[in-house]
Design a protein around this nucleic acid. Structure first.
Lengths: 195, 195
DNA sequence: CCTCCGCCTTAACCCAGGTCAAGCCCAGGT
DNA sequence: ACCTGGGCTTGACCTGGGTTAAGGCGGAGG
């Protein structure tokens, strides 16, 4: 077994027989990415996903009007991919970019579907993953509905302390739905308030 | 079969043997709700969900600070329940309220889990449901990140024309994340612009 | 060593939306 | 016919965040 830690993490989501995991490892390919390199670019078919072994990524949505907003950051142990587009069989509208030299474990969705046909555990795992992603998005929805930019900032760092120092202010702002300038102002306001 | 239309809708999501559906119908209970009556109140255990047969509901989250925001409206054929809380086994933080005299088909999650043990089709269906809910929430996230309140309003009516006349302005505003007052202003601005 | 560039901050100005408060319209109840 | 209350609008005023533009600073390449 090449990735025992990953196996353990997945096994906590749904019962996963080691021999099924072995099959998964057999079809997965490792890939290294340089800083700024894209794992997925907008327009690509959303036919693969990955687990981050090392590094940090940002999922950027480039809107028709040219604005960039950030859907998520992904670090070690997390899933990488244009999930929504995959589910809808649409080309990716998301760019997924390494913010550091990174290392990932790539799966073709096709291969994964093959695994699903072989054992129910994969179906169950996919369900858990979908459910967890849903819970996260709903939490984010709440934050937009109820919180100011400043409150969202505080929550962001509470929930993602491991990203400290690894992502730019500009990107944090794009994640919160505000501009770099506004974020800077908010931070200086807080600094002053704390004397 | 008491609800052939519902069966057909579900069968489009995942293959669903009629005999399995029959079992589901057997454990489901119909419930009628008056206008303003709650299907679920905050603090309740999130141990049941329902399909709307007739009527419209709103899922309201009452924030600690007393503000009300609306997570979703649900009309005929849609699912009703504190989904995120159910998945996390938390008490409901959501009130689900009938906006009209309504009629729903209620399932206990416990009964549903029993069905899951009996046949894989339910697992697959649950996965599809989770995935669809995810896609919807992600769409909403995009809207908060990229669109102004006015643009969100336009999209809202494009996507939910069947709610026209059935929900109050105040509720639309609470769904968009703005106040009743701001919504009214936006509408009068648009009226003028259209001369 | 200097320059350039990317990243962050600051300032000036503007506008969308929040807040508070008054007022309107209409449906229901007496 | 009268009140009452809920839902919607409007106005005055305030504030958070957008926009633009001007630096500051630190690291990479000449």
């Amino acid at each position: 077994m090449r990735f025992p830690k990953l196996f353990e993490r997945l096994a906590t989501l749904a019962p996963l027989p080691p021999e099924e995991w072995a099959k998964a490892e057999a079809v997965a390919k490792e890939q290294s990415l340089a800083k700024r390199e894209l794992f997925l670019r907008p327009g690509d078919a959303a036919d693969r996903f990955a687990v981050v072994l090392q590094g940090v990524f940002r999922a950027v949505r480039v809107s028709p009007r040219g604005g960039e907003s950030i859907k998520a950051f992904r670090a070690e142990g997390e899933l990488l991919g244009a999930y929504a587009e995959m589910l809808q069989r649409l080309p990716s509208m998301t760019a997924i970019e390494a913010l550091e030299p990174s290392h990932v474990l790539v799966f073709q969705t096709q291969d994964f579907q093959q695994l699903e046909r072989g054992h129910v555990c994969w179906e169950r795992l996919a369900r858990r993953v979908a459910e967890q992603h849903f819970v996260l998005k709903e939490r984010r929805e709440q934050e937009f509905l109820e919180l100011s930019a400043e409150e969202r900032l505080v929550k962001f760092w509470e929930e993602h302390p491991h990203l400290k120092g690894r992502i730019s202010q500009r990107d944090v702002a794009a994640y919160l739905g505000i501009t770099e300038v506004a974020l800077s102002r908010i931070m200086s306001r807080r600094r002053k308030r704390a004397e």
